[in-house]
Design a protein around this nucleic acid. Sequence first.
DNA 1: CCATAATGTCAAGTTTATTTTACATCTATT
DNA 2: AATAGATGTAAAATAAACTTGACATTATGG
Lengths: 79, 79
Amino acid sequence: MTKSNMQLKISNRLHVFRAEHRITQEQLAKEVGVTRATIVAIEGGGYNPSLELAFRLARYFKTDINAIFSVEEENNEQG
Amino acid sequence: MTKSNMQLKISNRLHVFRAEHRITQEQLAKEVGVTRATIVAIEGGGYNPSLELAFRLARYFKTDINAIFSVEEENNEQG
DNA sequence: CCATAATGTCAAGTTTATTTTACATCTATT
DNA sequence: AATAGATGTAAAATAAACTTGACATTATGG
């Protein structure tokens, strides 16, 4: 079992972006074309959305995917 | 029907990255933990992978998601 | 030409994202 | 306390990502 086969944990700051922009889950869901359940799931964490949805969220908040989503590194070789 | 409800077309340069790195579909598939069919599907285009897989591919090529995947803008304000 | 590796395709199956619906909780506001 | 808006949870259903296996085609090299 190689490392590349382990599931990556993807964390996100969607809740923060939503707070900053003062938009509700329901509004955001409508804006990006999904249901509130999906937004809830993403904010709940440990959830792996589609790339398209990630792009839509980034685009809505006029930012980059990496500003919202990031990979949880188990292995800290960022130096 | 608002624009935000239309499906975004996501294009990618996976084929290019793979050529540059001289790695086969099968090798790459193994590296990022999917099957060759998935790599073929992505390179074929019009395919919407998971965000996790997008992150894995970017990470493998030591680059950013945006260098590999991009949204096809119907509305050309990309500078 | 012959063998082998790499790629493209297709159909059927499994897993997981996303939807739908319903109900509970929490925070204002009156 | 009552009403209303926003959020959390959960279970069943649907859609879509991803797998599996098999076969065809296109390079590449002996």
